[in-house]
């Protein structure tokens, strides 16, 4: 049964008819076509579906869309502005943080959530913040390097 969901996705206020049993992941991917958010394990074990809900990183596969009604959701598609990559996106690109790319949106959104509350995390803090995100290429070193590079870029810009 569908009912109206009021929600802000990537800065745009929306009202959509959404099924009661729709996961936030299904709503984003199938309802809005925002397929940057990946469906990995589908059971909260891999972190590929990580999005920001009210600024905090959450698993879209373990969240009903209606449970975040009236909230704010940000996905990987919301990070670039006017074709300009975000600090984290640029760092992942330049420091080879992306291999097959499947875990990358989740990694970047989890890192984005961290940097908003802690703009200058050390490597251990980054590791802890990304502990729920798996990379099936096992490219963890480059991923941590990328987040560190984004932190440094932020410090230089400040």
């Amino acid at each position: 049964m569908k009912s109206v969901l009021r929600i802000t996705v990537n800065g745009r206020a929306r009202e959509d008819a959404v099924a009661a049993n729709a996961l936030l992941l299904d709503y984003l991917r199938d309802g809005l076509g925002l397929t940057g958010t990946k469906q990995g394990c589908d059971g909260g074990e891999c972190g590929a579906c990580t999005v920001l809900v009210d600024g905090r990183p959450r698993l879209a596969c373990c969240t009903l869309a209606h449970s975040v009604a009236d909230g704010t959701v940000e996905t990987i598609e919301g990070l670039a502005h006017n074709g300009r990559l975000s600090r984290l996106q640029r760092a992942f690109h330049e420091h080879l943080g992306t291999q097959c790319g499947y875990c990358t949106p989740g990694m970047i959104m989890a890192a984005e959530g961290l940097l908003r509350t802690e703009p200058r995390p050390d490597r251990d803090t980054i590791r802890t913040a990304l502990a729920g995100n798996l990379c099936r290429c096992t490219g963890y070193v480059k991923i941590l390097d990328s987040v560190e590079a984004a932190v440094q870029a932020g410090e230089e810009a400040a």
Binding site: A20, N21, D42, G43, C62, L64
Partner: peptide, 24 residues
């Protein structure tokens, strides 16, 4: 009853739980 959903929602999808109504 549904709280954070990290236990119940995967279990519902895996057929480990069944329900006609979810109370969030």
């Amino acid at each position: 009853y549904l709280a954070g959903g990290t236990d119940l929602l995967p279990n519902l999808r895996r057929g480990l739980a069944d329900t006609a109504t979810v109370i969030d």
